[in-house]
């Protein structure tokens, strides 16, 4: 369960977030949608604790991301945008490194790593050094790395960027599997179709503010648009008119 409450964040004169609030409950997929530069990444970065909010608060399973950040991170698996791997380590070693850093006992590290490698179908290249991996392979390994300690909450920042059709499809299946397992999945995207196909709830962020935050049907109803893309445009206009 991820809770975001009136987050504010500025970088110099740029006000990236101006009071963003939403909840991402367990067993549901929440999509963070918005145009480029709307504040999606900044929100997620505050959630996985690499940024601190200027105002407001956020919590992961009740653990505050500022005052209790170690616990919050323990409950979390994050895939930051453009995640990089260690090129001299094999995919398996990359994943195992994160497993150990997440505090898994050395006895169970191998089990966890094997299971996640199987789940993400990366057995074929698991023992190759990650130097020269394709974008799809890299994303899969990064995902495996983020999920190796079975986190209850999963944050994915534009996970489908640079993936081909097949890779996107398997990513979608994985996200649905995580949802079925009762996990809280929060991911950002600027691709409408992807969000429409996957999400239970959608939070549209424009200019550092939440334009609309509702279930998919709720958004259709409130904007009066049947097509989600039209609804998206309508939501952006909503903020622009303020």
């Amino acid at each position: 369960m991820i809770r975001v409450d009136r987050l504010h964040k500025s970088f110099g004169a740029v006000r990236a977030l101006r009071g963003v609030s939403f909840d991402a409950p367990d067993g549901r997929i929440t999509g963070l949608l918005g145009p480029n530069g709307a504040g999606k990444s900044t929100t997620l970065r505050i959630l996985y604790t690499v940024f601190k909010p200027d105002e407001g608060s956020a919590s992961i399973d009740g653990a505050d991301v500022v005052t209790d950040s170690l616990v919050a991170r323990q409950r979390l698996g994050a895939l930051p945008h453009g995640s990089g791997l260690y090129p001299h380590l094999s995919a398996r070693e990359n994943v195992a490194y994160y497993a150990r850093l997440c505090g898994l006992d050395s006895g169970v590290v191998d089990d966890h790593v094997d299971r996640i490698i199987k789940l993400l179908e990366i057995e074929d290249f698991a023992d190759r050094r990650t130097k020269g991996f394709s974008q799809g392979q890299r994303t899969k390994v990064s995902l495996a790395r983020a999920l190796v300690h079975d986190p209850q909450n999963i944050i994915l920042d534009e996970p489908s960027n640079g993936l081909d059709v097949m890779a996107t499809r398997s990513l979608r299946e994985l996200i649905l599997k995580l949802k079925d397992a009762g996990r809280c999945v929060l991911f950002s995207s600027h691709v409408m179709q992807e969000v429409a196909a996957l999400c239970d709830d959608i939070c549209i962020i424009v200019d550092g503010q939440v334009a609309i935050n509702d279930s998919v049907d709720g958004i259709r109803e409130r904007t009066g648009c049947d097509d989600l893309e039209d609804a998206f445009v309508a939501a952006i206009k909503l903020v622009g008119d303020d």
């Binding site: 604790t49 323990q74 990089g84 997440c102």
Partner: peptide
């Protein structure tokens, strides 16, 4: 190096100080 490779951000999101 970690930053340029993009491995710093995921590293910092782990439950370690």
């Amino acid at each position: 190096g970690e930053r340029e490779r993009g491995s710093l951000e995921p590293l910092l999101s782990l439950p370690v100080t």
